[in-house]
């Protein structure tokens, strides 16, 4: 697998902003003293007049973004997920969500794969928080191709969008030449009928690996890439429920309030089937290398495969 290209979606974010700057002259970028880490530094270098550093003041940054949007600009407010969604939650809710302003939030360093910095920076609650804001769109891309497409889709979407990016380099699984991204539409990456794995972000690749392993054991697994958590593609979820009879969700986020919850809420209303949630199991993270942490917290192909086996046995 040495020929697999890997890239962190935060880099895709910085590169996409830079590549799209000329096409969208109203686009401006805000950061809160993390431009080097969120990779908006790439944009800053190319377009210094369109990058505004707000300093270590995320609450104000979100308000400034709201004001820019109210005056017709398209601001990308960038910070770590912990601070963008966590610290600034109430400003995002009241100054961006309630007036439904055209602010894009670029939240990097989401999830446990932040690694060595540990629990204070490993945000596993952001999707849950953002889901509760009416009118908020939430995109959690799986790879470089999807992350870049998501940035342009966010620009073209009128209204607030929360884009979630990661620090860890992850395999590029979508072909940039043929990939089409549509907000709110999940992508079936692999057909299957014994179980459906609905995954998001870096867990999509793990789900594909798990499906391959399980195929060798005679278990047919459908893999759905749910890049948009909100609005949720209910059609693809309900089809999976009906046709596969059991669902496993996989996300680098708390099992409370994220993709797993969204999928469970959807099926329990319209087509109740068992939903097993793979994610961070209501616990804080800790320091360590990202790849080892992902394994330790069960955010791996091996753990997905285990849960699928159990789900199929229980059918």
């Amino acid at each position: 697998m040495s020929d697999v290209i890997k890239k962190a979606t935060r880099e895709s974010y910085g590169e996409a902003l830079t590549a799209l700057a000329d096409k969208y002259p109203n686009l401006v970028v805000l950061d809160a003293d993390l431009a080097a880490a969120t990779k908006t530094g790439i944009f800053k270098k190319a377009y210094p007049d369109r990058h505004y550093d707000c300093g270590i003041a995320e609450a104000n940054m979100m308000g400034v973004a709201a004001g820019l949007a109210a005056a017709g600009m398209i601001p990308f407010a960038s910070s770590f997920a912990m601070f963008a969604a966590g610290r600034a939650f109430e400003i995002v809710r009241n100054s961006i969500g309630y007036p439904h302003l055209n602010v894009k939030i670029g939240a990097t360093h989401a999830g446990i794969s932040v690694g060595e910095d540990g629990a204070t920076h490993q945000c596993c609650e952001d999707i849950a928080l953002m889901r509760t804001i009416p009118g908020m769109t939430i995109i959690n891309p799986a790879d470089d191709t999807e992350a870049k497409a998501a940035v342009e889709a966010a620009i073209l979407h009128e209204g607030p969008v929360y884009c979630r990016f990661g620090r860890l380099a992850v395999p590029v699984i979508n072909d940039p030449a043929s990939y089409k991204f549509e907000i709110g539409r999940g992508v079936t990456l692999r057909e299957g009928s014994d179980a459906a794995v609905i995954a998001t972000g870096l867990m999509v690749n793990e789900a594909l690996i798990a499906a391959e392993t399980l195929a060798n054991e005679g278990i047919s697994v459908r893999v759905i890439n749910m890049h948009t958590i909100k609005p949720l593609d209910e059609e693809i979820v309900l089809a999976a429920a009906k046709e596969c009879g059991t669902i496993i969700t996989a996300e680098e986020h708390s099992i409370i309030g994220g993709l797993g919850s969204a999928v469970a809420e959807c099926v329990c209303a319209a087509c109740p089937v068992p939903v097993r949630r793979v994610g961070v199991n209501d616990t804080f993270g800790h320091s360590g290398p990202a790849v080892e942490l992902l394994k330790q917290f069960g955010l791996s192909a091996e753990h997905i495969a285990e849960v699928v086996r159990e789900a199929v046995r229980a059918k």
Binding site: M62, G63, V64, G67, L68
Partner: peptide
């Protein structure tokens, strides 16, 4: 006041 800053910045 933050929102006003954003409007003024625009």
């Amino acid at each position: 006041i933050s929102v006003a800053c954003g409007m003024a910045l625009a």
